[in-house]
Amino acid sequence: MRLAYYPGCTLKTTAKSFDISTLESSKTLGIDLIEPERWNCCGTVHALSKDDVMHHLAPIRNLLRIEEMKKTGIVEESKVITVCAMCYNTLKRANLVFNSDSDKVKKINENMENESSVYNGSVQVEHLLETIKHQGWDNLRNKVKIPLKDLKVAPYYGCLLLRPRGLGIDNADKPSIMEDMIRALGAEPIDFAYKQKCCGSYHTVFMKERVADLSYKILNQAKIAGAEIIVTACPLCEFNLSHRQTEIIKNRSEFKEFPVIYFTQLIALALGLKEDSMVFGENKTDPRPLFKYKGFLKEI
């Protein structure tokens, strides 16, 4: 299955481990992800004010690239796969605006007049978790080489995978998609109170301490619930939950470093891929000691 893949800026810079583990584990699952030749930042946040047109140009331009890939036969479906929660949300919501607001469409098209074609609104925006779910959890289970037996994994959804209501990849109140994935990998999902709570998002730039505090609450709740590791699908959540541990430790000497990784890294591990497909060395919080202790990775 050849599908278009929108990585987003952060996966090309500070979250390379997310990009590489996504491509490698998808390949093993029979999904060939193809990055568009040209793409731009999606803008990361959906423009909420009703009169805003300018901020929709970035995501729509990317969707147009996907449509062009379909037209030229590079991909089989008019569909784009994303893994970053913010890219997913922004592309999906912009697509929805495009398909529901004809006045805005007119303005958007007018402002993209030097593109060689006009976006038709045909692209379906999908998160990789949904793609894997559609393949069937059994498909994933059958491909597992190293069942992650006795590994207690806390799925951290954060905000934009689930919200606003009706736009997320799962039920906003009671999500289960990451739990199902964790089970298929042979691990045990850990339910915890803060799995949908915001980590502080972009305030990590100018309100470091507050974000460290919110991240601490999330990490601590996961720990109390018995989790050994957190998985997430957002490079900003990952940054806050792992990099802000430096600030947490400064204020709370009793806090011990807690591993946070991307869900695709966990999949790559269970699929028995090579270590350079998981890129655990890029994570701020190194999960390898835990995985070695559990016998999932060999001692070197």
Binding site: K12, N40, C41, M54, H55, A58
Partner: peptide, 27 residues
């Protein structure tokens, strides 16, 4: 950057300015 492409439209050298700014943003 808004990816509005105004820079590309303004360029007398026909450079894809927005595309290179975006490439720089993602390193």
């Amino acid at each position: 950057c808004l990816s509005c492409n105004t820079c590309t439209k303004a360029c007398p050298q026909d450079i894809m300015v927005m595309d290179y700014v975006q490439a720089a943003l993602r390193g």
